[in-house]
Amino acid sequence: MNDLDLNTLLGAEDDEGRARRRPRGSGKRGGRRRRRRRNRGGLIAPLLAFVVLAGIIGGGGYYGYLWLSDALVPDDFTGQGTGEVVLEIKDGQSASEVAQELERLGVVASARAFTNAIGNANKSGSLQPGSYKLRKKMSAAQAVAMLIPENRLLARVSIPEGKRLSDTLSILAKATGKPAKEFTAAAKDVGELDLPPYARNKLEGYAFPATYDFQPKTTPKEMLATMVKRFNQTAETMDLEGGAKALGHTPHEIMVIASIVQAEAGRAEDMSKIARVIYNRLERKPPMKLEMDSTVMYALNKYRTYATHAELQTKSRYNTYMYEGLPPGPIANPGDHAIEAALNPAKGSWLYFVATDPKGSITEFATTEAERQALLAKCTRNGGCGG
């Protein structure tokens, strides 16, 4: 075999071998093209990544730096600030929401600075709802230090036991600086006050006397609702409804009795005895008129420990000298001692009590009319009179 024949044979065998390895219909040129395209695709991805990275480092790098810088070292004021700003933290607000509001008000330079300061102080869960007085352009740390419960803006109102509703409303208006007419209107519109059904849609007797702390934005209606809520809590604790049923009275009647006890008693230790006098008179056969001066004074909107003969002629249903039984409703807002006394009267047969020493708040009790007359004479000698 010559050289030509050998080369030809080898070439044929080489082409045949490669033909078997290639897919059908593919030529040698097509295969080379695919290999070249694959090589180009492998270079494009790294090249594109490089271009994007260069763009970030170049044109976008400045803004990325600013974002990172703000995240790590946010804008913050220094010092205690100036001026005055009132911040209200609403119930359920998060620290981040408070931070955004502080930034909007100009108190802190950035919300991020405040949230960082909260985290550093470990107070993220200690922000209490309420109104707080702050300053503009304060450091975030100083703002956090001022947002403590002790710094809340509150109107503290103390309502003494036994005050009539009209007096209670006046005290509230004076202490909070809100118009008295708003309290009067709120007291008449009792639909949203959550009064118990036995209150008969009347607030008198159910605005519980206590000390209250009200936020600056608390409305008169919300204040009265808070007082009613406090009454409802007291009534539940004392089992007012169950106790009334055991005594054969309604809860409303117990509250009327408690209000009279509150108005007539000079000392808490006399309350249960005064309550017993009221029950003894109501339970006599035939019933005995209560003849309580405090109910007459309520009818006439006056304040004295005893009524004159002329005043006893009033036709008001609150005149317990003229009408038998209890008056239509409470004559004051009794405290827990008076309510407790109405539910747990002392044991005794007394039918009378006389404030024999009004200045010393001394009250004495009698069973007979003769004993009562002796107590009235003692009262007169001490410069007073009542019964």
Rank of each mutant, 00 (worst) to 15 (best):
285 K>W: 10
278 I>R: 00
70 D>Y: 12
329 G>M: 13
313 Q>E: 08
189 D>F: 02
9 L>V: 12
131 S>Q: 05
348 G>S: 08
201 N>F: 14
38 R>A: 15
103 E>W: 13
3 D>C: 15
42 G>C: 15
180 A>M: 10
70 D>R: 13
284 R>G: 11
262 Q>S: 05
177 G>P: 02
334 P>G: 05
185 A>C: 03
93 Q>N: 15
303 Y>D: 13
168 T>D: 07
318 Y>F: 07
85 V>M: 07
355 A>R: 06
12 A>K: 14
321 Y>G: 05
282 L>G: 01
27 G>Y: 05
386 G>L: 05
287 P>T: 02
50 F>A: 15
13 E>D: 14
130 G>Y: 00
379 C>P: 07
348 G>F: 03
105 L>G: 12
259 S>A: 08
180 A>S: 10
155 A>V: 10
81 G>R: 04
53 L>V: 12
29 R>Y: 10
5 D>E: 15
343 L>F: 05
361 S>Y: 15
180 A>Q: 11
358 P>R: 12
384 G>R: 00
160 P>Q: 06
327 P>V: 03
157 V>P: 00
31 G>M: 12
248 G>R: 09
126 S>I: 12
281 R>L: 09
290 L>F: 03
282 L>T: 02
139 S>I: 01
362 I>A: 11
56 I>E: 05
254 I>R: 02
77 F>E: 05
255 M>P: 06
63 Y>S: 14
24 R>H: 12
23 P>N: 09
151 N>P: 01
142 Q>E: 12
169 L>I: 08
323 Y>G: 06
239 D>W: 08
176 T>W: 00
356 T>L: 05
248 G>A: 08
379 C>N: 11
51 V>P: 02
186 A>R: 00
94 S>Q: 14
45 A>Q: 11
227 M>F: 03
204 E>A: 03
25 G>H: 02
138 M>G: 01
77 F>I: 08
196 P>Q: 10
142 Q>A: 11
199 A>L: 05
276 R>P: 00
211 T>N: 07
134 L>V: 03
8 T>N: 14
196 P>K: 08
316 S>R: 03
228 V>A: 04
385 C>T: 07
200 R>P: 08
358 P>Y: 12
238 M>F: 13
321 Y>N: 06
370 A>K: 12
196 P>C: 09
135 R>D: 04
272 S>K: 09
282 L>N: 03
272 S>T: 09
109 A>C: 13
53 L>S: 11
167 D>G: 14
60 G>V: 04
350 W>E: 11
361 S>Q: 15
90 K>Q: 15
90 K>E: 15
306 Y>R: 06
18 R>L: 11
378 K>A: 11
364 E>Q: 14
240 L>M: 08
210 A>V: 01
271 M>H: 07
150 E>P: 00
174 K>G: 08
300 L>V: 04
116 N>V: 13
357 D>Q: 10
24 R>Q: 14
85 V>G: 04
12 A>R: 14
132 Y>N: 04
250 T>V: 07
90 K>C: 13
92 G>P: 09
252 H>R: 06
239 D>A: 10
380 T>H: 15
311 E>K: 00
102 L>Y: 06
363 T>V: 10
249 H>W: 14
268 A>K: 13
130 G>A: 04
351 L>H: 09
338 A>C: 07
219 T>K: 04
182 E>K: 03
